[in-house]
């Protein structure tokens, strides 16, 4: 069979192509780049979805934000609702790749590529996002934890298109952050990363979410860290206990970028930083985006 590419202009057309065995391409910054790097050859049959107007929309409502699958990292990082209410997601999107990567890389592609090091997964997981999946035979909605199955793997069927990401906006006094450890400031993939979402009731934490990035086969929450934070004042002691829980929940790989032991050691560092920034933001402090830079950058 020779290669083919169809440019879809509607969701219906796209899911019809998927049902016939085509693979979707959005910005191509994972799919086409991966093929160039020799990870996997380009699928023979492609459906380009970048022209589907409906999937480009980002719409803030009173209580929620709906992000079409084609919304780019640049658009998310610049969106006022994302910056003020879903700050961890802004922290994540603004540090993705280069200007070119952010201009063409999409949120749908980031999630569906399912890299354990992907930037948006931790924030979306901790903010209880859901995604809408559609195929020629129906539609369903799943949470991020349900979607991510392993490195490069999701629970979406091959004929399902990710249509949108939905987040209910947390109360305004919620603080969130995403911090990644990086060896240089740009064009970097997370060596390890951590997300924290915190809300206080008085001077005690009433709600806490913590997730780890590039530390396990999928991005995952760390319930023991969350439990250590709830009821605490987010002080050094609670943050230490939470950070130790993060290290305990980590099962990182060793690769060219870092050894497993180094990743586990650094997990505690990024977790402490993410918790500190989220707590400060919850208290109304203005910690600039991205938190990775604001909280120190490299190893310390």
């Amino acid at each position: 069979m020779s290669a083919s590419l169809r440019v879809a202009s509607t969701v219906e057309e796209a899911v019809h192509e998927l049902a016939a065995g085509a693979r979707p391409v959005a910005g191509g910054t994972d799919l086409v780049v991966g093929a160039r790097q020799g990870k996997a050859p380009l699928p023979q049959r492609l459906v380009a979805i970048h022209r589907i107007e409906k999937l480009r929309r980002i719409a803030a409502h009173d209580q929620s934000l709906r992000m079409g699958a084609l919304v780019t990292h640049a658009e998310l990082a610049a969106n006022p609702t994302v910056r003020s209410r879903l700050t961890a997601l802004a922290d994540a999107c603004v540090i993705v790749g280069s200007h070119a990567t952010r201009a063409f890389g999409t949120i749908g592609g980031n999630l569906m590529n399912a890299s354990p090091a992907m930037e948006t997964g931790g924030p979306l997981l901790c903010l209880d996002a859901t995604v809408a999946l559609r195929s020629a035979s129906g539609a369903r909605r799943v949470g991020i934890a349900e979607l991510l199955a392993g490195p490069g793997q999701t629970t979406a069927a091959p004929d399902e298109l990710l249509e949108e990401v939905y987040v209910a906006l947390p109360p305004t006094d919620t603080g969130s952050s995403y911090v990644r450890l990086e060896y240089r400031r740009a064009m970097e993939i997370a060596v390890v990363g951590a997300t924290a979402v915190i809300r206080f009731d008085g001077d005690r934490i009433a709600h806490a979410r913590v997730a780890i990035t590039a530390l396990a086969p999928t991005i995952r929450r760390v319930p023991d860290a969350e439990a250590a934070l709830v009821g605490s004042d987010a002080g050094t002691e609670a943050a230490q206990i939470a950070a130790r829980a993060v290290a305990a929940a980590s099962e990182p790989i060793s690769d060219i970028r870092a050894s497993s032991r180094y990743r586990t050691a650094m997990a505690t560092v990024v977790a402490r930083r993410a918790i500190a920034v989220a707590a400060a933001r919850a208290k109304g402090e203005d910690i600039p985006v991205p938190a990775s830079t604001a909280s120190g950058g490299g190893p310390r």
Binding site: L5, T29, A74, A100
Partner: peptide, 25 residues
Amino acid sequence: DSECGACMMLLDGEPVNSCSYLALQ
């Protein structure tokens, strides 16, 4: 493979790594 930027062009005004962008798109 999009690391070096020598292939950059503007696509609708935004920089794109054209080595890894499908011409048909």
